[in-house]
Amino acid sequence: MNPREVAHLFQLEVALDLRQRAAWGGMLLYVVSAVYVAYLAVRGTLGTATWNALFWIILLFAAFNALARSFQREDGGRQLYLYTLAHPRNVVLARALYNAATMVVLSLLSLLCYVLFMGSGAMAKADLAQFVLAVVLGGIGFAAVLTLIAAIAARAGNGIGLMAILGFPIVLPMLLLVMRTSKLALDGVAFSVNATYFGGIVLLDVITVTLAWLLFPYLWRD
């Protein structure tokens, strides 16, 4: 692993993405639409558990939508060019970092949008710092798990459909864990109670990124 190369690749990701502002617009519109559909469908106040569940379902689909693009940008030639310049492990690490950053921004914007439409009644008793931490860690977790899946789906040439089939069962442990954590945060429990779950999420992130880092070199070559 070469930190400088990873940093360069990360900058490349940012530059490429800033050129494609429509993609960001698409992601945000997806979240806003999903939240608005939920708002129209619910019409009224939700209990804490339902409020929390609905938020995570929206964020999960937003994550699939946002991360599916991450390996589809490159056509064969440009990918080959990139991989001759950089080590594939650095490429996947930079991509995972960039996806994590994307998901942090996306999950915070989703939360804002969700609170705007669905009301913050469920957050009355919440430990806000813990809840936001859970949302951020959850977003990073989705990015960690789905980066390699997105790469596999893109290589199989079968887009978001295959990504959903491959990704849902694998992301489920992470989803259950973050839902449990954020529900506890909404109930306003002490940090010491929730610390095990936060630790679990971080551990899962580290393990999945390590696996992606180990396995990716076998993925890119033809």
Binding site: V145, L148, I149, I152, R155, A156, L166, P169, I170, L172, P173, L176, L177, R180, T196, Y197, G200, L204, I207, T208, L211, A212, L215, Y218, L219
Partner: peptide, 25 residues
Amino acid sequence: RLAGIYNIFAFVLLVLFLFVVPRLN
């Protein structure tokens, strides 16, 4: 190659899910 990568990735996460998460929850 792709099936092998998915298999290894999924198995490790599955072992975590079956034997670690139930102990947290």
